[in-house]
Nucleic acid binder design. Sequence first.
DNA 1: AATCGTTCCAACCGCCACCGG
DNA 2: CCCGGTGGCGGTTGGAACGAT
Length: 289
Amino acid sequence: MGRSPCCSKDEALNRGAWTGMEDKILTEYITVHGEGKWRNLPKRAGLKRCGKSCRLRWLNYLRPDIKRGNITRDEEELIIRLHKLLGNRWSLIAGRLPGRTDNEIKNYWNTTIGKKIQGHPFSDGNRKPPKQTQENPKPTQPPKVDTDSCTKVVRTKASRCTKVFIPQEAQNPDDQIVDDNDHVSNNSPLVSVDQVNDQVAGIEESLSPIFLLDDENSSCKFMVDFKVDENFLSDFLNVDFSELYNNGNDEGGEVASATACDKVPDFRSSSMVPVIDYELDWLIDNTAH
DNA sequence: AATCGTTCCAACCGCCACCGG
DNA sequence: CCCGGTGGCGGTTGGAACGAT
Protein backbone atom coordinates (compact mmCIF):
# COMPACT_ATOMS: atom_id res chain seq x y z
CA MET A 1 0.00 0.00 0.00
CA GLY A 2 1.54 3.26 1.08
CA ARG A 3 0.75 6.61 -0.27
CA SER A 4 0.08 7.27 -3.90
CA PRO A 5 2.98 8.29 -6.07
CA CYS A 6 3.47 11.99 -6.64
CA CYS A 7 2.40 11.69 -10.24
CA SER A 8 0.36 9.05 -11.90
CA LYS A 9 2.15 7.01 -14.49
CA ASP A 10 -1.05 6.94 -16.47
CA GLU A 11 -0.79 10.63 -17.13
CA ALA A 12 0.86 11.62 -20.38
CA LEU A 13 3.81 13.31 -18.76
CA ASN A 14 7.12 14.05 -20.36
CA ARG A 15 10.01 12.10 -18.96
CA GLY A 16 13.71 12.10 -19.46
CA ALA A 17 15.84 15.04 -20.47
CA TRP A 18 14.35 18.52 -20.24
CA THR A 19 14.05 20.63 -23.33
CA GLY A 20 15.14 24.25 -23.55
CA MET A 21 11.52 25.32 -23.80
CA GLU A 22 10.58 23.43 -20.66
CA ASP A 23 13.49 24.99 -18.82
CA LYS A 24 12.38 28.42 -19.97
CA ILE A 25 8.80 27.87 -18.85
CA LEU A 26 9.85 26.57 -15.46
CA THR A 27 12.38 29.32 -14.88
CA GLU A 28 9.94 32.05 -15.83
CA TYR A 29 7.21 30.57 -13.67
CA ILE A 30 9.42 30.31 -10.59
CA THR A 31 10.86 33.76 -11.19
CA VAL A 32 7.35 35.17 -11.05
CA HIS A 33 5.68 32.92 -8.49
CA GLY A 34 8.56 31.64 -6.44
CA GLU A 35 9.43 28.11 -5.37
CA GLY A 36 7.12 25.71 -3.60
CA LYS A 37 3.76 24.07 -4.28
CA TRP A 38 5.58 21.72 -6.59
CA ARG A 39 2.66 19.41 -7.05
CA ASN A 40 0.52 22.15 -8.54
CA LEU A 41 3.34 23.90 -10.33
CA PRO A 42 3.35 21.87 -13.56
CA LYS A 43 -0.33 22.41 -14.16
CA ARG A 44 -0.14 26.11 -13.39
CA ALA A 45 2.98 26.58 -15.45
CA GLY A 46 1.69 24.49 -18.31
CA LEU A 47 4.35 21.83 -18.09
CA LYS A 48 3.77 18.17 -18.78
CA ARG A 49 6.05 17.12 -15.94
CA CYS A 50 5.45 15.88 -12.44
CA GLY A 51 6.08 18.30 -9.61
CA LYS A 52 8.95 16.29 -8.31
CA SER A 53 10.67 16.46 -11.64
CA CYS A 54 10.19 20.23 -11.76
CA ARG A 55 11.62 20.64 -8.30
CA LEU A 56 14.64 18.53 -9.13
CA ARG A 57 15.25 20.35 -12.37
CA TRP A 58 15.10 23.71 -10.65
CA LEU A 59 17.21 22.78 -7.66
CA ASN A 60 19.87 20.89 -9.55
CA TYR A 61 20.12 22.83 -12.76
CA LEU A 62 18.07 25.98 -13.25
CA ARG A 63 18.61 27.82 -9.98
CA PRO A 64 20.49 31.04 -10.71
CA ASP A 65 23.02 30.48 -7.94
CA ILE A 66 24.21 27.15 -9.28
CA LYS A 67 27.95 27.17 -9.76
CA ARG A 68 29.07 25.74 -13.07
CA GLY A 69 32.40 24.20 -13.81
CA ASN A 70 34.63 21.61 -12.29
CA ILE A 71 34.94 20.96 -8.59
CA THR A 72 38.04 22.77 -7.42
CA ARG A 73 40.76 21.19 -5.35
CA ASP A 74 39.64 23.12 -2.28
CA GLU A 75 36.08 21.99 -2.80
CA GLU A 76 37.21 18.41 -3.20
CA GLU A 77 39.17 18.52 0.02
CA LEU A 78 36.19 19.97 1.82
CA ILE A 79 33.92 17.29 0.41
CA ILE A 80 36.27 14.58 1.61
CA ARG A 81 36.46 16.03 5.10
CA LEU A 82 32.74 16.58 5.33
CA HIS A 83 32.09 13.08 4.10
CA LYS A 84 34.33 11.73 6.84
CA LEU A 85 32.25 13.62 9.35
CA LEU A 86 28.79 13.23 7.90
CA GLY A 87 28.80 10.16 5.71
CA ASN A 88 26.49 10.19 2.73
CA ARG A 89 24.60 13.25 3.91
CA TRP A 90 24.89 14.89 0.54
CA SER A 91 22.49 17.71 1.20
CA LEU A 92 24.38 18.72 4.32
CA ILE A 93 27.67 18.53 2.48
CA ALA A 94 26.22 20.56 -0.37
CA GLY A 95 25.13 23.14 2.15
CA ARG A 96 28.77 23.84 2.87
CA LEU A 97 29.62 24.30 -0.79
CA PRO A 98 27.86 27.37 -2.17
CA GLY A 99 26.49 26.82 -5.63
CA ARG A 100 26.94 23.08 -5.55
CA THR A 101 24.02 20.69 -5.36
CA ASP A 102 23.70 17.51 -3.42
CA ASN A 103 23.24 15.61 -6.65
CA GLU A 104 26.40 17.05 -8.10
CA ILE A 105 28.42 16.21 -5.03
CA LYS A 106 26.95 12.75 -4.84
CA ASN A 107 27.85 12.15 -8.47
CA TYR A 108 31.30 13.58 -7.99
CA TRP A 109 31.89 11.38 -5.00
CA ASN A 110 30.67 8.25 -6.72
CA THR A 111 32.68 8.87 -9.86
CA THR A 112 35.82 10.50 -8.55
CA ILE A 113 36.57 10.85 -4.87
CA GLY A 114 35.13 7.58 -3.72
CA LYS A 115 37.35 5.76 -6.14
CA LYS A 116 40.41 7.72 -5.09
CA ILE A 117 39.85 7.05 -1.43
CA GLN A 118 38.70 3.49 -1.49
CA GLY A 119 40.63 2.32 -4.48
CA HIS A 120 38.59 0.55 -7.08
CA PRO A 121 35.40 -0.53 -5.38
CA PHE A 122 35.04 -3.56 -7.58
CA SER A 123 37.72 -6.07 -8.17
CA ASP A 124 37.31 -6.10 -11.93
CA GLY A 125 38.11 -2.40 -12.11
CA ASN A 126 34.66 -1.58 -13.38
CA ARG A 127 32.99 1.35 -11.69
CA LYS A 128 29.70 -0.43 -11.68
CA PRO A 129 28.97 -3.57 -9.71
CA PRO A 130 28.87 -6.79 -11.64
CA LYS A 131 25.66 -7.42 -13.52
CA GLN A 132 23.30 -9.83 -11.90
CA THR A 133 23.97 -13.34 -13.07
CA GLN A 134 23.58 -16.85 -11.77
CA GLU A 135 27.11 -16.62 -10.46
CA ASN A 136 26.63 -13.06 -9.21
CA PRO A 137 23.25 -12.86 -7.59
CA LYS A 138 22.19 -9.30 -6.92
CA PRO A 139 23.05 -8.36 -3.36
CA THR A 140 20.10 -7.47 -1.18
CA GLN A 141 21.85 -4.27 -0.14
CA PRO A 142 23.77 -2.03 -2.48
CA PRO A 143 27.45 -1.61 -1.76
CA LYS A 144 27.92 1.13 0.75
CA VAL A 145 30.81 3.26 1.80
CA ASP A 146 32.19 1.81 5.00
CA THR A 147 32.67 5.11 6.74
CA ASP A 148 32.64 3.62 10.21
CA SER A 149 35.66 1.52 9.58
CA CYS A 150 37.88 4.51 9.03
CA THR A 151 36.20 7.36 10.82
CA LYS A 152 33.40 8.34 13.10
CA VAL A 153 30.37 9.84 11.47
CA VAL A 154 28.37 12.50 13.20
CA ARG A 155 24.65 11.90 13.41
CA THR A 156 23.06 15.22 12.73
CA LYS A 157 19.54 14.62 13.83
CA ALA A 158 18.61 15.82 17.25
CA SER A 159 15.57 15.96 19.38
CA ARG A 160 14.19 18.90 21.22
CA CYS A 161 16.48 21.21 23.14
CA THR A 162 15.65 21.33 26.83
CA LYS A 163 18.20 23.63 28.35
CA VAL A 164 21.22 25.65 27.56
CA PHE A 165 24.31 26.05 29.68
CA ILE A 166 25.96 29.42 29.48
CA PRO A 167 29.13 30.36 31.36
CA GLN A 168 28.93 33.38 33.60
CA GLU A 169 30.94 35.67 31.36
CA ALA A 170 28.57 35.05 28.50
CA GLN A 171 25.48 35.93 30.46
CA ASN A 172 23.72 39.18 30.67
CA PRO A 173 23.29 39.70 34.43
CA ASP A 174 19.85 41.16 33.81
CA ASP A 175 18.63 38.02 32.16
CA GLN A 176 16.38 35.76 34.13
CA ILE A 177 17.82 32.29 34.44
CA VAL A 178 15.45 29.36 34.39
CA ASP A 179 16.42 25.72 34.54
CA ASP A 180 14.76 22.89 32.69
CA ASN A 181 12.23 22.47 35.49
CA ASP A 182 11.28 26.12 35.14
CA HIS A 183 12.94 26.94 38.45
CA VAL A 184 14.17 30.48 38.42
CA SER A 185 17.62 31.19 39.70
CA ASN A 186 19.83 34.17 39.24
CA ASN A 187 22.93 32.04 39.62
CA SER A 188 21.94 29.08 37.57
CA PRO A 189 23.79 28.75 34.32
CA LEU A 190 20.69 27.27 32.73
CA VAL A 191 18.25 29.22 30.64
CA SER A 192 14.94 27.86 29.45
CA VAL A 193 14.80 26.60 25.96
CA ASP A 194 11.78 28.81 25.43
CA GLN A 195 13.98 31.81 25.93
CA VAL A 196 16.33 30.49 23.36
CA ASN A 197 13.55 29.50 21.04
CA ASP A 198 12.09 32.98 21.33
CA GLN A 199 15.34 34.33 20.01
CA VAL A 200 15.70 31.94 17.17
CA ALA A 201 12.40 32.71 15.50
CA GLY A 202 13.04 33.50 11.90
CA ILE A 203 16.35 31.77 11.76
CA GLU A 204 16.65 28.98 9.28
CA GLU A 205 15.97 25.67 10.89
CA SER A 206 18.68 23.08 10.96
CA LEU A 207 19.23 19.93 12.91
CA SER A 208 22.55 19.02 14.27
CA PRO A 209 24.58 18.24 17.31
CA ILE A 210 26.24 21.13 19.03
CA PHE A 211 29.28 21.71 21.09
CA LEU A 212 30.41 25.25 20.99
CA LEU A 213 33.98 26.12 21.67
CA ASP A 214 35.92 29.23 22.20
CA ASP A 215 38.08 29.92 19.21
CA GLU A 216 41.18 30.77 21.15
CA ASN A 217 41.49 27.92 23.60
CA SER A 218 39.01 25.39 22.30
CA SER A 219 37.24 25.23 25.62
CA CYS A 220 33.47 25.00 25.69
CA LYS A 221 31.62 28.25 26.10
CA PHE A 222 28.29 26.68 26.80
CA MET A 223 26.34 23.57 26.17
CA VAL A 224 22.82 22.63 25.35
CA ASP A 225 21.11 19.60 26.71
CA PHE A 226 18.74 17.54 24.63
CA LYS A 227 16.22 14.85 24.88
CA VAL A 228 17.82 12.45 22.50
CA ASP A 229 17.08 8.84 22.11
CA GLU A 230 19.69 6.48 23.42
CA ASN A 231 20.75 5.26 20.05
CA PHE A 232 21.39 8.73 18.84
CA LEU A 233 23.21 9.75 21.96
CA SER A 234 25.43 6.72 22.01
CA ASP A 235 26.16 7.10 18.35
CA PHE A 236 26.83 10.72 18.84
CA LEU A 237 29.17 10.04 21.71
CA ASN A 238 31.08 7.70 19.48
CA VAL A 239 32.47 10.75 17.83
CA ASP A 240 36.00 11.16 19.05
CA PHE A 241 35.11 13.75 21.62
CA SER A 242 38.12 13.08 23.75
CA GLU A 243 40.18 13.78 20.72
CA LEU A 244 38.12 16.80 19.81
CA TYR A 245 38.31 18.31 23.24
CA ASN A 246 41.98 17.64 23.61
CA ASN A 247 43.02 18.92 20.22
CA GLY A 248 45.59 21.55 21.03
CA ASN A 249 44.19 22.08 24.47
CA ASP A 250 45.33 20.01 27.40
CA GLU A 251 43.23 21.99 29.82
CA GLY A 252 40.03 20.68 28.38
CA GLY A 253 36.69 22.42 28.37
CA GLU A 254 34.21 23.21 31.07
CA VAL A 255 31.73 20.75 29.71
CA ALA A 256 32.45 17.07 29.47
CA SER A 257 29.38 15.88 27.68
CA ALA A 258 28.09 16.16 24.16
CA THR A 259 24.67 17.42 23.32
CA ALA A 260 22.67 18.58 20.37
CA CYS A 261 20.48 21.47 19.30
CA ASP A 262 18.88 23.08 16.33
CA LYS A 263 20.19 26.60 16.67
CA VAL A 264 22.25 28.42 19.22
CA PRO A 265 23.15 31.90 20.31
CA ASP A 266 26.56 33.01 19.18
CA PHE A 267 27.90 35.21 21.93
CA ARG A 268 30.77 36.36 19.83
CA SER A 269 28.45 38.00 17.38
CA SER A 270 25.54 38.51 19.80
CA SER A 271 23.20 36.82 17.40
CA MET A 272 21.62 33.47 16.81
CA VAL A 273 23.29 31.24 14.29
CA PRO A 274 22.31 27.93 12.77
CA VAL A 275 24.14 25.27 14.66
CA ILE A 276 25.16 23.45 11.57
CA ASP A 277 27.44 26.26 10.50
CA TYR A 278 29.03 26.62 13.88
CA GLU A 279 29.44 22.95 14.47
CA LEU A 280 30.71 22.06 11.04
CA ASP A 281 33.17 24.91 11.04
CA TRP A 282 34.54 23.59 14.25
CA LEU A 283 34.56 19.97 13.20
CA ILE A 284 36.28 20.81 9.95
CA ASP A 285 38.90 22.82 11.76
CA ASN A 286 39.50 20.36 14.54
CA THR A 287 39.31 16.88 13.10
CA ALA A 288 42.11 15.12 11.37
CA HIS A 289 42.26 15.51 7.63
C1' DA B 1 34.74 4.50 -39.94
C1' DA B 2 32.59 1.19 -37.06
C1' DT B 3 32.12 -1.09 -32.89
C1' DC B 4 32.57 -1.81 -28.18
C1' DG B 5 33.56 -0.56 -23.47
C1' DT B 6 33.76 2.98 -19.95
C1' DT B 7 32.67 7.24 -17.68
C1' DC B 8 29.76 10.74 -16.23
C1' DC B 9 25.70 13.00 -14.78
C1' DA B 10 20.78 14.32 -15.23
C1' DA B 11 16.79 12.31 -13.97
C1' DC B 12 14.03 8.95 -11.71
C1' DC B 13 12.37 6.15 -7.79
C1' DG B 14 11.05 4.96 -3.31
C1' DC B 15 11.21 6.07 1.29
C1' DC B 16 10.71 9.02 5.20
C1' DA B 17 10.05 13.16 8.16
C1' DC B 18 7.31 16.90 8.91
C1' DC B 19 3.15 19.45 9.20
C1' DG B 20 -1.57 20.73 9.20
C1' DG B 21 -6.34 19.35 9.39
C1' DC C 1 -3.51 10.91 18.12
C1' DC C 2 -4.19 9.76 13.42
C1' DC C 3 -3.94 10.40 8.64
C1' DG C 4 -2.96 12.31 4.25
C1' DG C 5 -0.33 15.69 1.60
C1' DT C 6 4.03 17.57 0.67
C1' DG C 7 8.84 18.31 0.36
C1' DG C 8 13.31 16.49 0.77
C1' DC C 9 16.79 12.99 0.67
C1' DG C 10 19.81 9.21 -0.82
C1' DG C 11 20.31 5.36 -3.95
C1' DT C 12 19.97 3.92 -8.55
C1' DT C 13 19.50 4.03 -13.52
C1' DG C 14 19.60 5.28 -18.50
C1' DG C 15 21.73 7.21 -22.02
C1' DA C 16 24.89 10.58 -24.04
C1' DA C 17 29.66 11.46 -24.54
C1' DC C 18 34.06 9.88 -24.91
C1' DG C 19 38.01 6.79 -25.57
C1' DA C 20 40.10 2.51 -27.13
C1' DT C 21 40.58 -0.93 -30.45
